[in-house]
Amino acid sequence: MTTTIIPNLQNFYNQSQQKQDNHFCDCTLQWRRGQLLVKPSGQVKQPYLPSLHNQPLLVECLKHSPVNLVSIDPKLGESSLRFWADACEQAHKPIFLRIPPGNKLPKQSSQSLRWLQRLIDWMIALVLLLIISPVMLILVMLIQSDSPESLFSCEWHVGQRGKLFRAIKFCTTKKYKLTPLGSWMCKYGVDNLPQLFNVLRGEMGLLGSRCWTLEDAVQLSLKEQRQLNNLPGITASWEVETQPKLLHLDSSTL
């Protein structure tokens, strides 16, 4: 049975009539079997919760709550999703996008093959990291001399079954402009090499579907969101993202 997470608070208000003084849209919180569901507001009464608009308060609430995971509706928009994702990260709570279910649950044999594939990916990623570690060290030194502001970027991406995670990449920009070294790295996909660490963490595979950024994922149709049920792969992301990203960043510097 679904109920509001904090049903005993007073000062109830109708969310469809009252607007908050910030750029985040209002949302409705519901509690279901250890999961916190974050949905767009509707014609329901919801307790006033200051923590929904104050990230430090939200982090403290999540830390001291029995929430196992947070499931958030992509209709809330990118700003709200980032707000909740950052808070869940600080509170050490996993957060998932609410997406349409994919195919039926795989049989036991298929699950065993998937675990074997994950193990193979993990071993290959570890070997590749050991082999290319001198190259990555050189790139780190070059980036440090070319753009000492930041070595890595960790943007929110959508993983298997809608789980949000930070994809690790080399930083290729300086003050929002593409550096000459960054241009070369983007052209050949070298900036994505640190994503091998995401493979070791089980967030990505070597082969798989495209790894969507949070910004792109919220713009997908319901039918397209089914792709987010699959484990994203590094190779698919490199093929799709390298050239469009390079063209986009180049145009911003003109």
Rank of each mutant, 00 (worst) to 15 (best):
H248W: 12
L76Y: 12
L231A: 07
S79Q: 15
K75N: 13
S183G: 15
K175C: 01
G182A: 01
I6M: 10
R118Q: 15
T242E: 06
K163L: 07
L200D: 01
A87P: 13
G182L: 05
L228Y: 06
Q30D: 09
N8C: 04
N103H: 12
N11K: 09
Q144D: 12
W115K: 11
L164N: 01
N229A: 08
I168F: 11
S183W: 11
Q17C: 01
L193R: 00
C211F: 03
A87W: 11
L52Y: 06
F165C: 04
K245W: 04
P134W: 05
S145C: 13
S145V: 12
S133K: 05
W238P: 00
F165R: 01
D121Y: 11
L247W: 03
K177S: 14
C61K: 12
W156P: 09
V59F: 13
Q227I: 02
A125D: 08
Q10G: 09
Q35Y: 06
L142D: 00
Q18G: 00
S79C: 09
P232K: 02
L9D: 02
E203N: 14
R33F: 02
A125C: 08
T179M: 08
N11W: 04
T253N: 14
M123L: 15
L151E: 06
V44P: 00
N14I: 02
L113C: 04
S16Y: 05
Q18L: 12
T235M: 15
K19F: 09
L119F: 11
S80E: 11
Y188Q: 06
Q243R: 08
S133N: 07
I234Y: 06
P50A: 02
L105S: 12
L36H: 00
D21G: 05
Q17V: 07
C27P: 05
L151C: 07
D216K: 15
Q15P: 06
A236Y: 08
Q18I: 14
C25S: 14
E215F: 03
N198L: 09
N230E: 11
R98N: 14
E215P: 01
S51I: 09
K187I: 03
Y48E: 08
V190D: 05
Q35E: 15
I131M: 11
K45D: 08
R166P: 10
S41L: 07
G205R: 08
L246V: 01
L137W: 10
K45A: 09
Q10E: 11
P66T: 01
S109A: 13
V38P: 08
M185I: 02
V158Q: 08
D146T: 13
A217N: 10
T253P: 01
